[in-house]
Design a protein around this nucleic acid. Structure first.
Length: 880
RNA sequence: GGACGUUUAGCUCAGCUGGUUAGAGCGUUCGAUUCACAUUCGAAAGGUCGCAGGUUCGAUUCCUGCAACGUCCACCA
């Protein structure tokens, strides 16, 4: 397209698709092909990011879009800096989440109980089909966002290579005694019929009824509980060791008939019991409370399971209660106790109910035979680890996780999340890793009678495989190195340099689920951290700060926004005005603002392209005027700061600086100046070239398009502009001119002067100021719309006047002005100035201040005072 | 119960290790449409930096307490 024909408004949707295809074709996404594009990538430093793999549960939301925008920004920045960038794409099978989703879909389609009706293989077929479709959608969405990932090496948490990694790590951990099968109390989701890890269980504040009673009429100790139905499983009563009321019972074994069931209770003393709560005695239910299970273990109490996996009472509850739901049983028990006269008190208390993370179903704690990863167990390290331990040294997984962050080998941003991370680790319990769902990595263990063998392949004909699958986070934990080829020796060796990866960028909501588990896996398997930095972004919320959800109907879909405003605008709106770890309120209004900015950049480029001759890049750049020196100085300054800020993950600040330079300095001032001073082709091209590069990581599409219109190709691998030193003096001088022009414009607006009219002014200026103005006389005249500037000793009394710096300027208006009003206005300015001068003088007289404050601060203040005094003098002179 | 975060202009947010008379965008008000852009341009108004103490020559910035809002964690049954 010839530049003259460029459309007035940038049409993102008309160009984005082609640009993306061009990038893909160029090979810029592939670290091994980069060198073909530019030789500087030959021995370049590796820079690797793994994409937090989106769940294959449907489509991407704005949180994903934010993640993609930030990661692509980093990747593009580093690619331009000359790093060998490798951004690894992939998706997550998200075991339970996906299976549940598919089940819902199938139920909607009329299959009442999909798993039972279809059977494992057919059901899994449906899940895989759904997952495949999700994957296609996700990939398309990532591409629409402009993500420059290497699509030729896409990974999946459930593909064959990842399965090898999972099996291998399972075997290693089993061998080291870290993974073991055990009969323990676990979190059980009765709706989805599977175990859950502690992190998948949430607490919900509710009101519950706390009942106080004795097990039967003759029982000497009363206890309190919110869950009477579990009391069939009580095997002990715990009291505080110093509690005098119960001292005589401690160590004794009592019996009772609880609602028709004979139970045996050992009275134990444990410091964990709070003597002030309730009656000070606690009925211990080892099978249905993790806390009680701990107590029971300490005191050797047996476990009696009274609630089954279906959430109903078992035969252990006696024939009157077995088969009832827990709620039904609870009501009946209270009634029975009341009738027996055992009930002492009923009161409403706040209680935090355990519920499953997805869905609202309550979670039961049940004893079950499951697989556990032991985080507090000592084991012998297979590698030299984190520079602290040698191969063969003993430590625990918890220690590894803690030291990785403590030693700053992994830095978390924002820093306060480190505290939260440590707190989580310190309270971490063994991780239940087996799930009773079908979609996932099947546990690589085989059984034959009492024999057990670990490994993916069947040891023989009579052996049966464990039907359970692994917690989805087990495979996600390996993501940084499983995607780089581990455990395949050849692949891993090839990619070794990319690990530890540069940065993990993700939402703070999965710090524990994922970030911590990656640190666990990587330090255990490799002896090194998975990434050097963790950048945690905040959640994207609606304009009122609410979570986006389908039920509220406030969801903004990236796929709707992109065609409407352009990808660049969507990306900017997710990066600007945000800081790490802080939630962001996003409105469509904001996206529109950045669409406007995209268009501004487009028009700046359009103007330069259509009004200048393309200048060869090699041509010497000679700033001629003060304005030239000013804008180049500004550009240089912005380049330095933006480079530094992006390196520090301060994207919003970097973007703000760029925006200010682009819109304010360049468009509003320098381009207007260029219309007056002329002959700026070389300098304008120089600025545009750099500007487009600096913006590229933020808004890749429009910049790449402009780049092509400038007759170049592959901005994506262009060299990040190097910083040229500059003198600050030049542009400080020019600021004086800008200030003067703004003052005149304000005076004109105040006086209602016809904006297009050229008027006469008089100025009072000292020698230096006069020289400065004369040097820039054409600019001042044009931008302030002046017909004539007369330098005088004093401005006529009835002319509207402004004092800026050392210059006093007055408008010579043909029609009369409101002298009274003018006088008042200036008087007001004088009155505002006086207290400032007074307080500043006082500060400067204070010896404590002048002796203790840094010299620069004192000097700056002196200068300010001088300026203020000069201004006051000029104003007072004006008033007569 | 513990921990963390937030509180700055009508709205959304900057303000990094304390140092000018606290900034930006949006919105508002006034004005402008041949001449890159009305997805625009010029100008203006608008803040006792949540409250109370403390440290300091100096506090929006550091410390303590309080309040409101939010988040995470948690074995008071």
């Amino acid at each position: 397209m010839a530049p003259k024909e460029l459309p007035k408004a940038y049409d993102a949707s008309a160009v984005e698709l082609d640009i993306f295809k061009q990038w893909e074709k160029s090979g810029a996404f592939d670290p091994d092909k980069l060198v073909k594009l530019d030789a500087r990538y030959k021995d370049a430093a590796p820079y690797c990011i793994v994409l937090p793999p989106p769940n294959r549960t449907g489509t991407l939301h704005l949180g994903h879009a934010k993640m993609l925008a930030i990661e692509d920004l980093l990747i593009r920045f580093h690619r331009m800096l000359g790093d060998k960038t490798y951004w690894i794409p992939g998706t997550d099978h998200a075991a339970l989440a996906t299976q549940v989703k598919v089940e819902q879909v199938l139920i909607k389609e009329g299959i009442k109980d999909p798993r039972r009706e279809l059977g494992r293989e057919k059901f899994l077929e449906k899940v895989r089909e759904f997952a495949e479709k999700s994957r296609d959608t996700i990939v398309a969405q990532c591409k629409a966002m402009g993500s420059s990932m290497d699509w030729s090496r896409e990974k999946y948490t459930l593909d064959e290579d990842r399965n090898k990694a999972v099996n291998k790590v399972f075997e290693m951990m089993f061998e080291d005694g870290l993974i073991e099968r055990g009969f323990r109390v676990v979190n059980w989701d009765p709706v989805f019929q599977t175990t859950l890890s502690d992190d998948e269980v949430e607490h919900k504040d509710t009101q519950a009824e706390l009942v106080t009673f004795t097990y039967d009429k003759d029982f000497p100790i009363a206890i309190s509980t919110t869950r009477p139905e579990t009391k069939f499983g009580d095997t002990g009563v715990a009291v505080h060791p110093d509690d005098k009321r119960y001292k005589k019972f401690v160590g004794k074994t009592l019996t009772a008939v609880f609602c028709g069931k004979q139970i045996t209770l050992k009275v134990i003393a444990d410091a964990e019991v709070d003597p002030k709560f309730g009656t000070g005695a606690l009925g211990v239910t080892p099978a249905h409370s993790l806390i009680d299970a701990d107590l029971a273990e300490r005191h050797g109490l047996p476990m009696v399971q009274v609630i089954g996996q279906d959430g109903k009472m078992t035969a252990e509850a006696g024939k009157d209660f077995s088969g009832l739901t827990t709620i039904e049983a609870r009501k009946k028990i209270i009634k029975t106790l009341e009738a027996q006269g055992c009930l002492q008190k009923k009161e409403s208390v706040p209680q935090s109910l355990l519920i499953a993370q997805r869905g609202e179903s309550p979670v039961e704690q049940l004893p079950m035979r499951q697989w556990f990863l032991r985080v507090n167990k000592k084991f012998k390290l297979r590698n030299d680890t984190l520079g602290k331990w040698k191969k063969g040294d003993e430590t625990t997984l918890k220690e590894l996780m803690r030291y990785a962050v403590e030693s700053k080998q992994t830095k978390i941003l924002p820093e306060n999340f480190e505290k939260i991370y440590f707190h989580w680790i310190d309270n971490l319990r063994d991780w239940c890793i087996s799930r009773q769902i079908w979609f996932g990595h099947q546990i690589p263990v085989w059984y034959k009678n009492d024999d057990m063998k670990v490994g993916p392949d069947s040891p023989g004909a009579d052996w049966v495989r464990d039907p359970d699958t692994l917690d989805t986070w087990f495979s996600s934990g390996l993501w940084t190195f499983s995607t780089l080829g581990w455990p395949d020796e050849k692949e891993w060796k090839k990619n070794r340099a990319y690990h530890p990866t540069a940065v993990l960028e993700t939402g703070y909501d999965i710090l524990f689920f994922w970030v911590a588990r990656m640190i666990l896996m990587s330090t255990y398997v490799l002896g090194e951290v998975p990434f050097k930095d963790v950048y945690l972004h905040g959640l994207v919320r609606d304009e009122k700060g609410r979570k986006m959800s389908k039920s509220i109907g406030n969801v903004l879909d990236p796929l709707d926004l992109i065609p409407k405003y352009g990808t660049d605008a969507v990306r900017l709106s997710l990066v600007m005005g945000t800081s790490p770890g802080m939630d962001q309120k996003l409105s469509e209004e904001k996206i529109k603002d950045y669409r406007n900015f995209t268009n501004k950049l487009w028009n700046i480029s359009r103007y330069i392209l259509t009004s200048t001759q393309l200048v060869a890049r090699s041509s010497q750049l000679v700033p001629k005027t003060m304005a030239d020196k000013w804008i180049l100085g500004r550009l240089s300054d912005v380049q330095t700061k933006v480079t530094k800020l992006i390196g520090e993950y301060q994207f919003s600040q970097a973007g703000d600086l760029l925006r200010e330079f682009t819109w304010n300095d360049l468009a509003d001032w320098y381009l207007e100046i260029s219309k007056v001073e002329k002959d700026k082709d070389a300098i304008l091209n120089h600025i545009l070239t750099r500007l487009i590069k600096l913006w590229h990581p933020f808004m890749p599409f429009v910049t790449e398009y402009i780049w092509s219109l400038m007759g170049n190709n592959d901005l994506i691998v262009a060299k990040w502009p190097e910083v040229v030193p500059h003198s600050k003096k030049n542009y400080r001088n020019f600021e004086t001119i800008r200030l003067l022009i703004t003052d005149i414009r304000r005076l004109r607006a105040e006086q209602g002067v016809e904006p297009s009219a050229f008027i006469k002014v008089a100025m009072v200026a000292d020698k230096d100021a006069k020289k400065l103005i004369e040097e820039n006389i054409a600019i001042v005249k044009q931008l302030a719309r002046l017909e004539e500037i007369e330098f005088v000793k004093a401005v006529e009394k009835n002319w509207p006047t402004a004092v800026s710096g050392k210059v006093t300027v007055g408008l010579n208006l043909a029609s009369g002005i409101d002298v009274e009003k003018e006088h008042e206005k200036i008087q007001k300015e004088i009155e505002a100035l006086k207290p400032y001068i007074k307080s500043t003088e006082a500060k400067l007289k204070n010896k404590d201040f002048t002796s203790k404050a840094p010299e620069k601060v004192v000097n700056d203040m002196k200068n300010k005072l001088d300026e203020a005094k000069a201004k006051l003098k000029a104003l007072e002179k004006r008033q007569g």
